[in-house]
Simulated scan of single mutants.
Amino acid sequence: MNDKILKILENRNIKPTSNRVLVLKAMLNFDWAFTLADLENELISVDKSTISRTIHLFRHQQLIHSFDDGSGSVKYAVCNTECNCSLDELHAHFYCNYCKKAFCLNNIHIPQFDLPPDVEIEGVNLVIKGFCGKCSKIAT
Results as ranks from 00 to 15, higher is better:
V46E: 11
K75A: 09
L63Y: 08
T54A: 15
L43Y: 07
N29W: 14
N97G: 11
T140E: 06
E40R: 14
L36W: 13
I110N: 04
W32N: 04
E122K: 05
K75G: 10
I110P: 01
D69T: 00
S66D: 06
L6P: 09
K100Q: 06
G130T: 03
K25L: 03
S73L: 06
N125L: 05
M27K: 15
L28Q: 10
L22A: 11
K129R: 14
L36G: 01
N13R: 04
N107T: 07
F113C: 02
V21W: 10
C104E: 08
I5G: 06
R53D: 08
I128C: 00
A92Q: 01
I110L: 00
V119A: 09
K75P: 15
S18N: 04
L24Q: 14
L24T: 05
L63C: 08
I138V: 15
L63N: 12
M1V: 04
E122R: 01
K75M: 10
A139T: 01
C135D: 01
I51G: 14
K137M: 06
C104S: 09
S18Q: 08
C96S: 03
L126G: 00
V119G: 10
G72M: 02
V124C: 13
S52D: 08
E42N: 07
A102T: 02
C132T: 11
